[in-house]
Every structure is written in C-alpha cells, then in structure tokens.
Design a protein around this nucleic acid. Structure first.
Lengths: 200, 200
DNA sequence: GTCTATAACCTGATAGAC
DNA sequence: GTCTATCAGGTTATAGAC
C-alpha cells in the first residue's frame, strides 16, 4: 500500500494512527493530540503532513468507504456466477473482512449520518443496489418480491453482529473470541437461510 | 411522561431539544449552544436545570437505552406466547417504534462504542439474550443451533434498514416515505422468513 | 427563572528554533 | 523533518444583574 522506503514512514505512521483513532471514536470525539500520541509523534507533524484534521479525516474516510462498499462491487455485477454463488461470496467476503476490522461499519455509518451531504457524491453505491446483475437474478427468481429485501437481509445478517459487538461484549453475552467463532459459523448458515427464504 | 403543569415547561423543552440534537449528532458533535437554540432558551438555563452537558446527556441516554431495549423485554420472557408469536411481536414492535425514531439504533450503538465501560452496568440486557423464555423455546425447536443466531437474525432484519437509512437516502436508493413502506412490508415478510429459516 | 457577560478550559493550527 | 511554545477561536460552565 505504501511505495515508500522500507519501514513505516512518519507520514504512514500518522495515517495509521488516524485510522485507529477515528474508527474508534469518530471524527468529533477524536482530538488531533490523540492521533499524535497514538502515532508517537509530535502534534505539529500532523499538520505538517496533512494540513488539517479534516483533510486527514477525509483521506481515512474515503479509504474506509472503499473498504466497506468495495467488498461487494466486484461480486455483485459478475454475470458468470449464479445467484447462490453470489450470496456465498458476499457473506464470505464481508465476514472475513469485518473480522479484521469490526469497527468499520459503525464508524462509516455514523459519519455518514453526521454528514450525509458530504457523502452524496457516492451514488455509485446506489446503482449497485438497484441496477446490478445481482438484482436482475433476484427478480428472475422472485419477481413478486422487491429485491432490496433480500439484499438487506444478506447484508444485515452478515454485518449486524459486528455493529452490535460493543453491546454483546459489554453485556457479557459473548467475548471477542466467541464472536469470531460465531460469525465464522454464520458464513455457511446465512447461505442456507437465504435458500430457505427465497424458496418460501 | 411529565407530571408537571399544563404545557411544556422550560425543563422539559430543554430535555426534548437535547433528545433531538444528541440523537442526531452524537455527544461529542453536540454543543450545548445547539441544544439551547433548539429549545429556544438561553444557554445558561441548560446548566441551571441540568448542571452540565454530561449530566443532561446521561439522562437522555438512559432514556434512549430503555426505549431501544425495553421493546423486547416484556415480549421475550412471556411464557404464554408461542415462538412464532414472539417473533411477530418483536418485529412489529421494533419496526413500529423505529419508524417514529429511525436514528435511535445508530445513536445508542455509537455512544456505547465510544464508552463501553459506562454502559457495562446494563448487563440485564445480556440475560435476555441468553436466559429468556424465548431462548428456551428456540432451543426446544432447534437444539442443534446456537439460539443467538436466530435472535441476531430477527433483530438484524428488523433494525438494519434503519441503521443504513442515511446511506439509502443519500445514495438515492430510497426516500424516507418509501423506506417506511419498505419496512412496513417487512413486518410480515420477516415472520415468514423466520419460519422458513428455522425449518431448514 | 431568565438573561448578559465573562471566566476557565480545551483544541486545532502555526511560528520559529534546531 | 521534527520539535517547543504559543496563538486564535471556540466551548462549557458560572457569576451576577434583573
């Protein structure tokens, strides 16, 4: 990702720290001093490299949006895979990715809520949800059901456990390790459930 | 809710404004000036009635947590309703309530993420997810599946559309009115899907 | 109870030495 | 490139007049 020298350059250290802190606390609750401390550098260096808190945030945010929505993009418009194959691929991709980055959905969704207009340019995501090959296949199978229902179901069943992770953990229902096993198990279950759903 | 005089007292006006602004922007992004303006009162009155921003927030937050989790409490431990009846009641209750308060889940979940330890006392919620009558019924029907899977499915399919509402709207996939019809339609669909799931 | 004015503090950003 | 010191602006909270 960094075509720089050998190890983590100062610039990359700051960016990485920003990823961590922003994702954990959100834009407003994050102080530039938090990022500087996390990166182990001086506060002034943040502005030297990135000009402002907002500029650094936008960099991280754009990256996180690509991470979150980029997962389905290549899968959903593939004309060579079947409906069920797509579902299996989407579920596998999301759960694997979110296991490494559990805070991602809550972060992105919160920030979009706080600043919807700033995100409005990304209407390419909308097209995927209304005009993709996946939608066409859903309609062929079930012309009587609005396809967004199934898309929401697949995404919700895959992503929701990570969104409520803080609740599950702080209430002692499940710990981080158990949650990992739990979501791993869901990879096959959701595909099975989807089949049952779409045939019902 | 307010056993006060006739109309909205100043105290209640401030609390109501706090509900609105905190829910919309979260704790950190909210300035006490925003609340004062929304309430149409002077900034100093906020501190006169509630001492501090944090104190006011805790009041609102406790209320919102009760709103969000209180929905299932009476349903989930009722020994007189069947499994499927419970599912129908949960879905109905959540979708109806969230249609009136769409920002609630994202708000509560974000704030819990930002401050998990502060929320740790609410482990009563955990008991509902692991020891309720509902869990017992799920286990009777499907002893081979970890019951939390089904609970997550029902909650996710009901709540997730409201969590991604800002995305659906800002990408032009669906507008507020359409989302309402969409979630309304899901009330019966989710129950149907649940039956298919648990029998598969 | 409600307001104005201001204190006390915090945060983002920069100047300037090294 | 990196640091220390500090400024400028904004935010919470309070003092004190009415």
């Amino acid at each position: 990702m960094a075509p720089k020298s050998k190890d983590a350059s100062t610039e990359e250290r700051i960016k990485e720290a920003a990823r961590t802190v922003f994702t954990q606390k959100g834009y407003s609750a994050t102080r530039t001093r938090d990022i500087a401390e996390e990166a182990g550098i001086n506060l002034a260096l943040l502005n030297y490299y990135f000009r402002s808190k907002e500029k650094l945030f936008e960099l991280v945010m754009a990256e996180k949006i690509r991470e979150l929505f980029g997962v389905i993009t290549p899968i959903i418009n593939d004309s060579k895979t079947s409906l069920e194959e797509k579902v299996a691929l989407i579920v596998e991709a999301y759960i694997t990715m979110l296991s490494q980055n559990p805070g991602l959905p809550l972060f992105v969704l919160s920030e979009i809520r706080n600043n919807p207009e700033h995100f409005a340019n990304n209407l390419q995501v909308g097209k995927l949800l209304t005009e993709s090959y996946f939608v066409k296949q859903l309609l062929e199978k079930r012309p009587d059901v609005f396809p967004l229902h199934y898309i929401v179901n697949i995404l919700s069943m895959s992503i929701f456990p990570f969104i409520v992770k803080p609740v599950l953990e702080s209430t002692g229902v499940i710990n981080a390790k158990q949650l990992n096993a739990f979501t791993e198990e869901r990879k096959t279950l959701i595909v099975k459930w989807f089949k049952a759903m779409i045939d019902s």
